[in-house]
Write a protein that binds this DNA or RNA. Structure first.
Length: 514
RNA sequence: GCCUACGUAGUAUAGUGGUGAGUAUCGGGGCCUCCCACGCCUCAGACCUGGGUUCAAAUCCCGGCGUAGGCACCA
């Protein structure tokens, strides 16, 4: 009689309807890995496409690349990941709890132990009598736990490679090639969509914390002197965002609504480029169907900011069971380019006319694709009002645009519907065909994966070449001619016309009165 | 990694130291049906994994893997 959680319901429908599967499920695969099924993959592709349109195609200075996921060790020596992703863990001999050695020392005796070796940490633990937080037990010698997956490169080589823990490094590594080959001038951005890997200690919560995940990132290279001189500033400065300020977090308060300009003036938003991406991220998240009262930007506290970053704002989305952080926005300064310049002895400067060579600074919006997919699933999921659950995906994200189906499999309706299906596919409609079971079952099945429209061939079609279109969100139906149905679906999907508008113009029938 | 609970068809569940492992739903095929998981027939489908105890283990014990929650860790 246990009431199932929302997450369990979503996982259930993901499995049944081909959206998301656990990896290597038949071997009880390790946790933290999930794969997209046919329906989920379609949703994923659609989200990627929306992102590319907004963040790459809509700009005139953003270039997209695709980098290697395995990179040699020196990359991560330079980037700091070998050091800072390397946590010294110590374990209690009594209760087996794990702690970060540096954290527990700092917590119990307030000493900063940055840069100490494992042996030195252990000495301090013994000397200062540091004990287990939970049971006061004795702590073991700390050992390294690195969150990066390592591998070897080449057949007999002892050359170490790592699966990248973030996509960003490829962009820094290719900085010179890109700026030269594209004749790029500051400011310009490099975008990348790809996998990243982190060997999390305990993956949890379905798609929230994964060991293999996908990021959509931009590194925006900017002249630091121009960081408060964004080209579109006048157009966006009055845009309102909600920010959970550092002050509000201390007071356990609520996000504050402010214009971007006010955020800059009050020194809450670090610079105009970050403000610009807050603007862009806000629009994007709303395109995914998430309303503005459901998300905000959290200004990370200083001790939560990553080793490379000067300022961070996480876009967090509120759901019934909690908060999901989906998009990071970081000011990485010139940290990465300088580190790689030093380590590789490569010039990472770019020429700025009238100024000479400089190392640009970097603003990085970083989108967690898997988390966004999850956010979309959670946000679109509806379990009330019908005998089945359904997804009210935005039309541009839904796995298919329309179902084509005959009312019944007889009297030629089947063949007519199938011909219409091929016709619509030729017209570029992302259509799916189904003639099994009965009509109600088919509507329900398609609601369940969030297909926005169902086109039904019925007896009238055979007489006068009209079909009905059923709207997923209202279950209302209209009747239109077969010749027009493709273009009408196209206009509905692109939101050139709304359902309400088209209802005015056509015959509405069979209103569902349950 | 620790603690607690759990693991039976795709999903949800019943059940017992010796069973033909039951039911519902989904799925496939067929029938019926002029619009929202109708009904009928039919087929297919399961005891997480490895070891131990036992004449006998899906059932009891231990380990592993996985899931949920809590701790810790992490963004």
């Amino acid at each position: 009689m246990k009431k199932k959680s929302l997450q369990e319901d979503i996982v259930d429908v993901c499995l049944r309807r081909g959206i998301i599967f656990p990896s290597a499920e038949i071997y009880n695969g390790p946790s933290g890995f999930y794969e997209f099924g046919p329906v989920g993959e379609s949703i994923r592709q659609n989200i990627i496409q929306l992102w590319q349109e907004a963040f790459v195609n809509a700009e005139n200075n953003v270039y997209e690349i695709s980098g290697s996921t395995i990179l040699p060790e020196n990359v991560f020596e330079a980037s700091g990941h070998l050091e800072s992703f390397n946590d010294p863990l110590t374990q209690c001999e009594g209760c087996k709890s794990m702690f970060r050695a540096d954290h527990i020392i700092e917590e119990q005796v307030g000493i900063n132990v940055d840069g100490k070796s494992l042996a030195e940490l252990f000495d301090i633990i013994k000397e200062k009598n540091i004990v287990c937080n939970t049971c006061k037990g004795v702590l073991t010698m700390p050992r390294e736990f690195n969150m990066m997956f390592s591998t070897t490169i080449g057949p007999v080589s002892d050359k170490t490679g790592y699966l990248r823990p973030e996509t960003a490094q490829n962009i820094f590594l290719n900085f010179r090639r890109i700026s030269h080959s594209m004749r790029a001038k500051l400011p310009f951005g490099v975008a990348q969509i790809g996998k990243a890997y982190r060997n999390e200690i305990s993956p949890r919560n379905f798609l929230i914390r994964l060991r293999e995940f996908e990021q959509m990132e931009i590194e925006m290279f900017v002249d630091p002197d121009e960081i408060n001189n964004h080209t579109y500033w006048d157009d966006i400065k009055d845009f309102e965002v909600r920010i959970l300020t550092r002050e509000a977090q201390q007071k356990n308060g609520k996000p504050k609504k402010m214009t971007l300009e006010q955020g800059i003036t009050d020194k809450i938003i670090h610079n105009q480029y970050m403000a610009y991406y807050m603007f862009k991220e806000s629009l994007f998240v709303q395109d995914l169907g998430i309303s503005e009262d459901q998300f905000w930007f959290r200004h990370l506290l200083e001790n939560q900011t990553a080793h490379y970053s000067k300022a961070n704002y996480d876009l967090e989305i509120q759901f019934p069971f909690g908060i999901v952080e989906c998009i990071g926005l970081a000011y990485r300064t010139d940290y990465d380019l300088i580190k790689h310049a030093e380590k590789s002895k490569t010039n990472m400067q770019i020429n700025v006319p009238g100024k000479g060579n400089i190392v640009p600074h970097v603003i990085e919006p970083s989108f967690g694709l898997n988390r966004l997919v999850y956010a979309v699933l959670l946000n679109s999921y509806i379990s009330e009002g019908r005998e089945w659950t359904w997804f009210k995906f935005p039309k541009s994200i839904a796995p298919w645009e329309a179902l084509i189906t005959p009312l019944m499999k007889k009297d030629g309706m089947d063949e007519t519907a199938e011909n219409l299906y091929w016709d619509l596919k030729d017209q570029g409609i992302d259509a799916i065909y189904d003639n099994s079971g009965n009509i109600g079952k088919r509507y329900a099945r398609n609601d369940e994966v969030g297909v926005p429209f169902c086109i039904t061939v019925d007896y009238d079609t055979l007489k006068d070449e009209t079909v009905t279109i059923r709207d997923r969100d209202t279950t209302e139906q209209i009747r239109v001619s077969m010749d027009e149905v493709g273009s009408i679906i196209r206009e509905l999907i692109l939101e050139i016309i709304t359902w309400e508008e088209i209802k005015e113009e056509t015959e509405v029938l069979n209103e569902n009165t349950e």
